[in-house]
C-alpha cells in the first residue's frame, strides 16, 4: 500500500483531551489519515466521547473523564487510550478524491481586494495574472479553526505568495480572501488579521441557522472563480435572503 499508516503518537492534552498525531508535516497523505481517523471515531465513539478537532497532523479528542471512568471506577486516560487503540485496526485511509469541489465566487481587487496590486508587484506579475493563478488551483481544506468556518487551505501556487502585513488590521470584513506567506484563506467573521487582501466572496462561510453551520468542512476541496462587483452584489443580496 502506498500510503501506509505512519507510527502514531498518542499523548494527553491536559486531563480531558488526548492528541493522536499522524505525522510531522503538512501533506495530503497525512491528511487522509487524519480525515479517516476522525470519521472512524465519529462513527464508533466511546463512552465519554465529547468531540474531536482534526488539524494538519493531529486529531485531538475531547472526553468527559467522569463518564469515561464510569464515575470514577477506572482510570479515564487508560479507558480512552484503550478505546482508541481498539479502533485502529479498522482504520483505512480516506479516498483522496472523494470530496466534490466547492466553487467560491470572489470579486478581486478594488475596495474588496485593496492589496491585490501589492501582491502583483511583490511577485513582479500583473494583477490579472494573480487572479488567473489564484483561480487556477484547487485547494484542500486541511482544517477549520481559528474562527467559526475559517478554512486552512493548502495548495496555493508559490508564485503569488506575499508576506503578511507588519501591522495587522484591526478589523477585516467577513468574506475577505487573503494571502499570508504561502497560504490563502477566507476570513469567516470580521476579525483582526494580517494577511494581504486580494478580494472578497459574497458567500457566508458561517451560517449559524443552517445545518451544517459552515460552508466548508475539513477535507473539502475548493476552487475560486472571479466575479464582477455587480455579480458580487447580486449574489450577496441572494445570500442574505436565504
Amino acid at each position: 500500500m502506498e500510503n501506509a499508516l505512519p507510527p502514531l503518537q498518542i499523548s494527553p492534552l491536559g486531563d480531558a483531551a488526548i492528541i493522536v498525531k499522524f505525522g510531522e508535516n503538512i501533506s495530503p497523505a497525512t491528511h487522509t489519515w487524519v480525515k479517516a481517523f476522525a470519521k472512524l471515531l465519529t462513527t464508533y465513539s466511546f463512552p465519554g466521547f465529547v468531540e474531536l478537532v482534526p488539524a494538519y497532523t493531529t486529531v485531538t479528542i475531547f472526553y468527559n473523564p467522569w463518564v469515561s471512568s464510569e464515575k470514577g471506577k477506572y482510570n479515564p486516560y487508560e479507558q480512552v487510550t484503550n478505546a482508541i487503540l481498539n479502533l485502529l485496526p479498522q482504520l483505512k485511509p480516506a479516498a483522496e478524491t472523494s470530496s466534490p469541489i466547492v466553487k467560491i465566487p470572489v470579486c478581486y481587487g478594488g475596495n474588496f481586494g485593496p492589496d491585490l496590486a501589492f501582491v502583483a508587484l511583490h511577485n513582479n506579475i500583473s494583477p490579472e495574472e494573480v487572479i488567473h493563478i489564484h483561480t487556477r488551483n484547487i485547494y484542500l481544506v486541511y482544517m477549520i479553526g481559528f474562527a467559526p468556518g475559517f478554512p486552512y487551505l493548502g495548495g496555493m501556487d508559490a508564485s503569488i505568495a506575499a508576506p503578511r502585513k507588519k501591522v495587522p488590521l484591526t478589523e477585516i470584513p467577513a468574506g475577505s480572501v487573503g494571502i499570508g506567506g504561502l497560504q490563502t484563506g477566507i476570513y469567516s467573521l470580521p476579525t483582526p488579521g494580517g494577511w494581504q487582501l486580494i478580494g472578497r466572496t459574497p458567500l457566508n462561510l458561517f451560517n449559524p441557522g443552517q445545518q451544517p453551520a459552515t460552508l466548508l468542512q475539513a477535507g473539502d476541496r475548493v476552487q475560486f472563480f472571479s466575479v464582477t462587483p455587480a455579480e458580487f452584489n447580486q449574489r450577496k443580496a441572494r445570500e442574505n435572503e436565504s
Binding site: 491536559g14 482544517m143 477549520i144 481559528f146 474562527a147
Partner: peptide, 29 residues
Amino acid sequence: LSTAVTFGTVQVPPRGNPIVLLSDHQTTG
C-alpha cells in the same frame, strides 16, 4: 503546525508572554 487548544491551555506567542486560554478561546492555535 496549527492544532487544537482548549480551556486552560497555556500558550506562549513569540514575544514570550504566556496566555492562558479561557471559555471563548480559539479552537486551534
